[in-house]
Amino acid sequence: MAAGGDHGSPDSYRSPLASRYASPEMCFVFSDRYKFRTWRQLWLWLAEAEQTLGLPITDEQIQEMKSNLENIDFKMAAEEEKRLRHDVMAHVHTFGHCCPKAAGIIHLGATSCYVGDNTDLIILRNALDLLLPKLARVISRLADFAKERASLPTLGFTHFQPAQLTTVGKRCCLWIQDLCMDLQNLKRVRDDLRFRGVKGTTGTQASFLQLFEGDDHKVEQLDKMVTEKAGFKRAFIITGQTYTRKVDIEVLSVLASLGASVHKICTDIRLLANLKEMEEPFEKQQIGSSAMPYKRNPMRSERCCSLARHLMTLVMDPLQTASVQWFERTLDDSANRRICLAEAFLTADTILNTLQNISEGLVVYPKVIERRIRQELPFMATENIIMAMVKAGGSRQDCHEKIRVLSQQAASVVKQEGGDNDLIERIQVDAYFSPIHSQLDHLLDPSSFTGRASQQVQRFLEEEVYPLLKPYESVMKVKAELCL
């Protein structure tokens, strides 16, 4: 049975990233139509530049190519590739079939990587351009969430054990800070992308030097003109047959890092959902379990974690691919890159769409948070109580021993009897502590235990987050809708 299948058929496997999760716009960027249309555009740009620099290419040939950029006979191309065992030459023939007058000058002087690699770089750039505003929107939604809850005390956790208090907004800023680093890295790697350009079979530009009869300047002009037509500021000066596969490492490393950030955020949300302090959106008709109707599973956060793990592992592909590119190139890269580049971007696209949807509907339960604080705060307040007693004339050592005994009794009630923490009640009825009984409410005010959390939130948002989001103001209103 021949390899390949009808990918629109229910009898043929289709990647869930495309069929179930990723956005239509990201799927289109990695589609065959987008790819092969870009090949034709690159052939047109090459012909236009070659004509401008004096090669015998007519206006009629150029116009014929322009008129057929979208006229792609995919069936013919597939048949040609089956016959020739070469995808680029299959599309040269297919393009030439609908451009008979231009057929002889299509791909003039070029090698397969002229269309293959340059198209990949265009796709990487455009895919990054799709991700950047999506990530900015996630940051914006979380920034709104953090600002609104900047002063809401909550129990902090280290080692997932109760620690000092923080605020809900401050905790959210930990998430935002990681995503801001990801946004900066995505922008950097996007701006650092260079075009492969017009380089020939081993990167020496020998074929173009021959076409222009040894004119170095025209060869350099050709490279520059096509690079500018493709919208790049610069091209690699040095290439082998391909652009260095280190570029793929750079791009997928940034995406993998984004995956790590999203995994951490969504894990926190899942843990908070278990504590009943916070939940992701839950639709009115949504079913959490087929057997347990009360369940409210954090399905979206779980999906993000599941896909983020996949995204983090994909960076190993370009690392290994770059390491086995012998001399000017081997074909070890080809099949692998067809999979890992598309999957990385479709996965990143999915987790950003999902995280935006989550961040637009996060639900906080202040009463649950308050109750958990009441359970733990008495123990945390013991040092403040000791200091207040010393100020009232008591002995630190005597007070410490009193607190120690009462704390152990209260802990026994919590752990052995399943009761509430009654340390404060014990202190309130103990005559030894009568000098500070009137101060206990103040000493137990949760806001006095959150330090500068709310001020940190305000400063972080104003100095770091809002300036970073400013270039994306025009796209901030787009909502994230999930079908599944």
Rank of each mutant, 00 (worst) to 15 (best):
C399R: 02
D248W: 05
L222Q: 08
A146S: 10
A77E: 07
H217A: 13
D144C: 14
R196C: 12
C27R: 15
F95S: 02
E228M: 10
F449G: 03
F74K: 15
V168H: 10
A273L: 03
N357V: 08
R149I: 05
F195S: 03
P162L: 06
K218T: 06
G288Y: 07
T354N: 10
S474P: 15
N185H: 12
F212E: 07
S290F: 03
L272N: 01
T38H: 06
W43R: 00
K246L: 04
L406Q: 03
A146D: 00
T239N: 01
C113H: 00
D87K: 00
K264G: 06
L179E: 02
Y13S: 12
E70C: 13
E473C: 12
L128Y: 07
R329S: 03
R426P: 03
S474W: 15
C340S: 14
L211R: 01
L255K: 03
W326A: 06
F36R: 08
H310F: 07
K284I: 09
G8L: 15
T201A: 01
N357R: 06
Q356W: 10
A392T: 12
V413H: 15
Q286M: 01
R171M: 04
H437F: 05
G169C: 00
R14S: 15
K246W: 01
A410T: 04
W175A: 01
L69M: 11
L341W: 09
A381R: 04
Q63I: 14
K477W: 08
D422E: 07
H91I: 03
I351C: 10
E25Y: 11
L341Q: 15
A348N: 04
E280G: 03
K233N: 09
A2T: 14
E376L: 06
C173N: 06
L468R: 08
L174W: 15
T382I: 08
L444P: 04
T450Q: 07
I139Y: 06
C304T: 11
I57R: 01
L142W: 11
R270A: 01
Q456A: 09
N297A: 00
T350V: 15
C173F: 05
P467H: 03
T321A: 03
G197N: 03
K246E: 03
P318R: 01
A18P: 14
E79H: 11
R309D: 04
K295G: 00
L461M: 15
A18Y: 10
Q51N: 06
G288L: 02
K82R: 11
L440V: 08
N421W: 03
C340Y: 15
E250T: 11
E50V: 05
I57C: 04
F449Q: 05
Q375M: 12
A480R: 15
V324H: 09
K147W: 12
R404D: 02
I287M: 06
A110H: 02
R190Q: 09
A410W: 03
S257L: 06
H437E: 06
K134A: 11
G259R: 03
A230W: 01
R141D: 04
K477R: 14
T242G: 06
L44K: 05
